[in-house]
Simulated scan of single mutants.
Amino acid sequence: MYRNQHKPNPPLDAELERWICHYWKARLSDKQILDMLKRKHIDTSRYGLGLTRFRAMRQSLGLVSTRTQSIQVGDLVLPMQRLREKYPLAGMRDMRNHLFHEEDLSVSRRQLYEYMKAYEPQLLQQRKARHLKRKRFWAAGVNDIWCCDQHDKWERFGLRLHTGVEPFSGRILWLKIWHNNSNPRLIAAYYFETVDSLGCMPLVTQSDLGSENYCLAKAHTALRHWHDPALAGSLQHRWMREKKNIKPEIAWSQVRRRFTPGFENMLDHGVQEGWYDIDDPLHKMVFRWVFIPWLQAELDRWRDEFNFSKPRADRNKILPHGVPQLIFESSEVYGAVDFKVYVA
């Protein structure tokens, strides 16, 4: 299927290497990566690339498959111990992703199950069914809407979080931690930073009712009016009442279940041992100076891993099934429309 018809192979330059690593990070197969490269990044009128030659390219970059790595169960002990300090309650699916993204280990489900059966049998018994109350959410396509929300579960540490989500793809746009999440200018800055990095904005933004979102709503509306004068006089922000801003709430439940427990235990341990006193002004400033950059780096790493991980299949979901980052970048591959507005 991938015969190159005697055309020369494309040079393995920095740009091609970047995209190979990008799609490998999303855990696509060799065939899927080659399809994406030919579709978007290789000039097929000049170059040809077959599956065998592509595998050689991939291996030359140190991107080794699960079978080639041939990892034994005993080899997972130390990496799993390191990861369990941060993710004590993570299940098999999450731990497999953590091993791939943080330890550069490609492990099969069977190998990880054998490890957990031998070393973590108690965690396998803790899995319980959950009864979900489903709600319906509708989006026309990628960048039709961006939803944002705040999170105050770490208020006892003097820390507060904020997130932005692109709901059609499921991509987390930002996941920020600071000692405050009620400053309207700060929330607008998160939005501007994301628009600047992506070079585009959505049709509409959405948030809960609250004064902290006023600057974001006004800024986005002003930008939309600037790029499309026909929208003058309209509000390009959607206000949602309590419990109606569904997608960010789902994102927070994922953070609480998959990221928070280990780091929360570390912070609680520090408070209990008397290493710092959040009520003391000096301790508070030192705590912020030390822990906020560290936690932000960990949140960025987890967000990146989440965006490049394919979620579990859901038969109730009509939106595309796939890796959030790839759906966001290549909506046409998934039969979807991208409504992004390029920012001049």
Score class of each variant (00 low, 15 high):
61 L>N: 10
197 S>N: 05
229 P>I: 01
140 A>K: 03
223 L>R: 10
31 K>V: 12
306 F>S: 13
132 L>W: 01
210 G>C: 04
163 T>A: 15
147 C>V: 02
122 Q>M: 11
217 A>M: 03
242 E>D: 10
87 Y>N: 06
50 G>D: 15
297 A>E: 15
183 N>I: 04
41 H>M: 09
27 R>G: 09
26 A>P: 11
116 M>E: 13
312 R>Y: 08
141 G>T: 01
264 E>Q: 08
91 G>Y: 01
94 D>I: 04
23 Y>N: 12
226 W>V: 07
216 L>G: 04
12 L>N: 11
186 L>K: 11
85 E>G: 11
30 D>M: 02
196 D>M: 02
4 N>L: 11
111 Q>C: 10
152 D>F: 01
171 R>G: 03
263 F>C: 08
333 V>N: 09
335 G>C: 02
5 Q>M: 10
148 C>N: 09
224 R>Y: 06
33 I>R: 08
312 R>I: 09
143 N>M: 00
44 T>R: 05
219 A>C: 04
34 L>H: 09
327 I>H: 00
291 F>S: 12
127 R>S: 11
152 D>T: 04
114 E>V: 02
226 W>L: 12
344 A>F: 06
95 M>V: 04
79 P>S: 05
295 L>W: 08
308 F>K: 15
82 R>Q: 14
258 R>V: 02
181 N>K: 05
91 G>Q: 04
264 E>R: 06
280 D>G: 11
269 H>D: 13
270 G>L: 05
322 G>H: 01
338 D>E: 01
50 G>Y: 08
112 L>V: 10
137 F>R: 09
188 A>C: 10
262 G>R: 04
84 R>Y: 06
291 F>Y: 15
104 D>T: 13
340 K>W: 00
326 L>E: 05
53 R>W: 07
132 L>H: 03
237 H>I: 03
17 E>V: 11
306 F>Y: 15
94 D>R: 08
71 I>T: 14
218 K>A: 12
244 K>H: 12
161 L>Y: 05
342 Y>M: 14
179 H>T: 14
311 P>N: 09
233 G>V: 06
55 R>H: 09
162 H>T: 13
125 Q>E: 14
28 L>Y: 07
180 N>S: 12
289 W>G: 09
122 Q>N: 14
9 N>L: 10
282 L>T: 15
222 A>D: 11
233 G>M: 05
127 R>T: 13
225 H>W: 14
5 Q>Y: 05
114 E>S: 08
262 G>E: 11
320 P>K: 00
142 V>T: 07
76 L>A: 08
248 P>T: 01
164 G>F: 00
74 G>N: 13
260 T>M: 13
237 H>D: 09
143 N>E: 05
52 T>W: 07
243 K>N: 10
258 R>Y: 08
238 R>V: 04
133 K>Y: 04
256 R>G: 03
110 R>T: 14
331 S>T: 01
125 Q>T: 12
41 H>N: 12
75 D>F: 00
175 L>T: 06
314 D>L: 00
89 L>K: 14
307 N>H: 02
110 R>D: 14
31 K>E: 15
47 Y>V: 07
305 E>S: 14
128 K>W: 03
267 L>A: 07
25 K>T: 13
3 R>D: 12
218 K>P: 07
160 R>S: 09
166 E>P: 07
127 R>E: 15
272 Q>E: 15
